[in-house]
Design a binder for these strands. Structure first.
Lengths: 247, 247
DNA sequence: GTCAGACTTTGACCCAGATCAAATGCGAAC
DNA sequence: GTTCGCATTTGATCTGGGTCAAAGTCTGAC
């Protein structure tokens, strides 16, 4: 299941998420102190990072890979409430049980900090607290955006909205503007997409087929997606024409 | 429309939200500095505090009354993404246009801070930044809880969930435990409830009638609600039996 | 007291998406 | 290369909640 990660002792200075994670604003000396309390951890695709109700021993940043935050009702209905990408933060200072299941969708590496030392450090270094506030506000905006999707959009618009988000993220990683032709891989199964969108996997599949039939997307295999015209996809998502802006 | 509030110059020390708003953690001297940059503002029921896209000149705390945060699509579909109760915070340091409409549901009084001075003050007083982080994390949890409601619950469960929230809040204000018999007034119209729940007002009305018929609630007029057995209501909401806990 | 207008309830019907069921890939293990 | 298991697609049917329409009901203004 979960092993202590490869002993490639990484230095924060070389870290791929150095400039976007919770440590983004830290000065070199602060980074040094963080390095003392951090450790890496690897999780296999499909394994649980945290179970809802679990005691959390640490907070962490996703270094690589993708994880999901989900809530499940007693009868098994589940709703994804967050998609964790590299640099996203897991856990809440001052709380010690997780209200959500955190599941690795792909193999992931997490940069973990034991909770107590991290909390102490947060009190002493405003750079961390400030960055965490900023990230939390971004997540809150994203959650509210998603409430509109869940509450008011049709199945087709929901799918298009999700594709839009993934396409944007992918473009951002590759330092390209999200417009024109875009190509990316879906990091989620149809079932995970359904859990994100409040749909069934059958409906997800049907709407993917419909978008393909209508030329909004092209599929190669199940996961490899080409968007011939990003603005067309935006229209399908029902978003404001300008497409809004992310942080 | 909006007038500068009654000139009852309030002192922070006597403020009803003194211990739960963004200023909750402030020391007396910090409060003094806040008092210098704050001003009260009154909005009539039904009026807009902010329009989506507006430049925000201030951030603010709700002192009394209820406001809503909503998002609207071009074709008019709207989704409420936040319910602002006394002590809740409006606005985001570091951003200057509102992504949402903020509408006063009842007459409200806001304690406003001009943005620039507030931001400067936040940098100097960690008590404010820390409290704001805490409040934002709570809101994020609430938003995620709401994603489960929007994505996976039936209309009846949605209504019961909303009633649960309002009943809990009301019990908290009156310093009573949320259990047994509860009585409160609905602060929202059927349409606002629908916008919150991702339903139509007709469905809201039908489900309210159904809950009444089934003895889960009693109605006196349209707004005055009696819950004879809170645990029954919790069951209807489909929440975990323990009812979860709020901050 | 009554009138106008907004809010709410109720009914009839319809449809998007759920449910149930069966094929169809498709990759990993042997 | 065959087989097993899983993800996905597709089809048939059902239904919860939406839509359209018509009554109530309440409140505040006069």
């Amino acid at each position: 299941m979960n092993q202590i990660a490869q002993n490639i002792s990484q230095e924060c200075g070389d870290c791929p998420i150095r400039h976007s994670a919770v440590c983004a604003r830290c000065e070199p000396d602060e980074l040094t102190r963080l390095e003392e309390i951090k450790y890496y951890r690897h999780y296999d695709a499909g394994s649980h990072v945290l179970w809802s109700g679990d005691r959390m021993e640490f907070v962490a940043s996703v270094v690589s890979g993708i994880a999901t935050l989900t809530q499940t009702m007693e009868d098994g209905r589940t709703q994804m409430v967050g998609l964790l990408l590299p640099s996203d933060f897991v856990g809440r200072p001052g709380r010690d049980t997780s209200p959500y299941d955190v599941v690795a969708t792909t193999d992931i590496i997490m940069c973990c900090f034991r909770k107590r030392p991290f909390e102490q450090m947060m009190e002493r270094t405003p750079h961390i607290a400030h960055r965490l506030l900023e990230m939390t506000l971004d997540e809150l905006d994203a959650a509210r955006e998603w409430m509109l999707v869940l509450g008011r959009k049709t199945a087709r618009e929901k799918i298009a909205s999700l594709l839009t988000i993934i396409a944007r993220r992918d473009a951002a990683i590759n330092l390209r503007a999200p417009k024109g032709v875009l190509v990316f891989d879906l990091p989620l199964t149809r079932e995970a997409m359904a859990d994100y969108l409040g749909l069934t996997l059958e409906t997800v599949s049907r709407q993917m087929s419909a978008l393909k039939r209508d030329g909004v997307i092209e599929l190669e295999g199940k996961r490899h997606v080409t968007v011939p015209d990003f603005s067309r996809l935006l229209d399908e998502a029902g978003d404001d024409s300008d497409g809004g802006m992310l942080a």
